[in-house]
Simulated assay, not measured.
Amino acid sequence: MDLTKYPKRKYTLSETPIEKLENLTKVLGGPNIFMKRDDMLGLTAGGNKTRKLEFLAADALEQGADTLITCGGVQSNHCRLTLAAAVREGLKCQLVLEETDYSLYNPKASGNNLLYHLMGAEKIKVTTAGHDLAEDMQELNEELAREGRKGYMIPVGGSNETGTLGYIACAKEIIGQSGDMAITFDHIITPSGSGGTQAGLVAGFSGSDRGNHVIGINVSRNREEQEHLIRDLLERTFSFLRTDGITKEAIRCYGDYVGPGYAIPTPEMVEAVQLVARTEGILLDPVYTGKAMAGLIDLVRQGHFKRNENVLFIHTGGTPALYEYSSVMLSEEN
């Protein structure tokens, strides 16, 4: 797929590294576990949304926007990085934050919330769980229009056809790196939430021998709902790219590790975050990578992978949210 015809900004100076997690591999008794360090991407504190925003911000600038509008949870990594992209481009940014029963908005909270204020979000609108976030963003957009300004709305997670291009590009990057390393990755594991990361990887690997090897570990939905979401986004993306689609078998989502719901901690997530911190000195986040790593660890313990296989875990970032979960992490210490 030729992505050069799509406008793109560059927020990361070089490829993110792929590291072998020697200690974690040893503790778990195989397979060989590697990590793609997308927590080291550019913009404030890094994370997978940076790749999506390279295309989304470029599109916004092409359209003459002066304000980025997006939405997410009260500790949204996507909102943090969208704001960072806006700052980098000299744009304003307005956020719609959704409360849940577990995560209420606290303007004095740490984590991503601290960074919203530090970087100077122009407006933060807080809404209750289940409210139509697209409708809230549209209201902000219409307010801007009445002021003679031009907004650019970005969906949850930056997961639309344009944002998904970021992880098509990432798949191509991984193919090149695996060639340089002379390693074939038998499985690619990624957190799967709004869908753009998993859909982009599946699309980017299509046509290669890795096309059916992407596994999404769900963070908010059951398997059927998430696979439907990924399939719909892929269909829209392939239509946008005007290229052939993929087979149903390429979409695999595991919904066993969500727990009570999105952003609600689980004991398995806490164990995974602690284990990776204490074996590799790498921080995971409690919402996405912590639950995805819990899934990977459980699959290893179940014997899902052969001992000599190579498994690549996509670290999608999100670590600023970890600091807002300190009481959960400390209460589970052993």
Rank of each mutant, 00 (worst) to 15 (best):
K5E: 12
K10M: 13
Y11R: 08
T12D: 08
T12S: 14
T16K: 05
I18Y: 03
E22I: 14
T25D: 05
I33A: 05
D39C: 07
M40L: 15
L43P: 02
R51Q: 12
A57S: 14
D66E: 11
C71W: 02
T82L: 08
E89K: 04
L91R: 01
E98Y: 07
P107V: 11
N113L: 09
G120H: 08
K125D: 12
G130R: 05
D132Y: 01
A145E: 15
E147D: 11
E147C: 00
G148L: 14
Y152L: 10
M153Q: 12
P155S: 04
G157Q: 07
L165T: 03
A169H: 13
A171L: 02
Q177M: 15
D180F: 03
F185P: 04
P191L: 02
G196W: 02
T197I: 03
V202E: 11
S208I: 13
I215K: 03
H228M: 14
H228Q: 15
D232F: 00
R236M: 07
F238P: 01
I246S: 01
T247M: 11
T247K: 14
E249P: 01
G261R: 03
A263T: 07
V273K: 03
V276I: 14
A277N: 09
T279E: 11
L283K: 00
D285R: 07
K291L: 07
A292D: 05
L296P: 01
I297C: 08
G303E: 15
H304P: 00
H304K: 14
H304F: 14
E309A: 01
V311W: 13
T319V: 15
T319A: 15
L330N: 12
